[in-house]
Computed example of a mutant assay.
Amino acid sequence: MSEDEPARKPIEEDARIDALEKRLSAAQQREEQRNLKPGSGADANYRSGNRVLADLLGGLLGGSVIGYAIGYFTDTNPWGLLVGLFLGIVVAFRNIIRAANRGPEN
């Protein structure tokens, strides 16, 4: 033996071990996908938060614009605006409560 050659030859990788590792990693990935709940996580919370914000702002702005327009044309402007704003708040909270009771899967 020469000085450049090691005393023992390195053990070669067994093809069966490689195949087993591939099957094991594939099974772990399938298990993670199976345990992952649909609609969960930060994305679903972000979407539901945006939905609540849009319902709230839409109800307030929509009710105030429609109430102002009705009050302007009927010449009862402060009361038309207040009634429209109140109805917009009621509709916004109704939509928020319905979305909260429906759950994150929809």
Results as ranks from 00 to 15, higher is better:
residue 34 R to T: 09
residue 73 F to I: 03
residue 99 A to R: 12
residue 15 A to T: 10
residue 60 L to C: 05
residue 29 Q to L: 08
residue 42 A to N: 12
residue 57 L to V: 03
residue 28 Q to C: 11
residue 6 P to V: 07
residue 77 N to C: 06
residue 16 R to Q: 14
residue 31 E to G: 02
residue 28 Q to R: 13
residue 51 R to V: 14
residue 41 G to Y: 03
residue 37 K to G: 02
residue 79 W to Y: 00
residue 14 D to M: 00
residue 11 I to G: 04
residue 31 E to P: 07
residue 72 Y to I: 10
residue 60 L to G: 02
residue 18 D to A: 12
residue 101 N to L: 13
residue 78 P to L: 06
residue 8 R to M: 09
residue 52 V to F: 05
residue 24 L to M: 11
residue 86 F to L: 05
residue 4 D to F: 14
residue 100 A to Q: 10
residue 39 G to M: 06
residue 74 T to E: 12
residue 55 D to S: 15
residue 89 I to C: 04
residue 10 P to F: 09
residue 36 L to E: 15
residue 35 N to L: 15
residue 59 G to E: 08
residue 98 R to H: 10
residue 23 R to M: 12
residue 70 I to C: 05
residue 26 A to R: 11
residue 75 D to R: 10
residue 16 R to C: 03
residue 3 E to K: 07
residue 15 A to C: 01
residue 98 R to N: 08
residue 97 I to V: 13
residue 51 R to F: 06
residue 82 L to P: 01
residue 36 L to Q: 11
residue 46 Y to T: 14
residue 94 R to D: 13
residue 33 Q to M: 11
residue 32 E to Y: 07
residue 66 I to R: 04
residue 13 E to I: 07
residue 91 V to C: 06
residue 41 G to M: 04
residue 17 I to R: 14
residue 91 V to I: 05
residue 36 L to P: 00
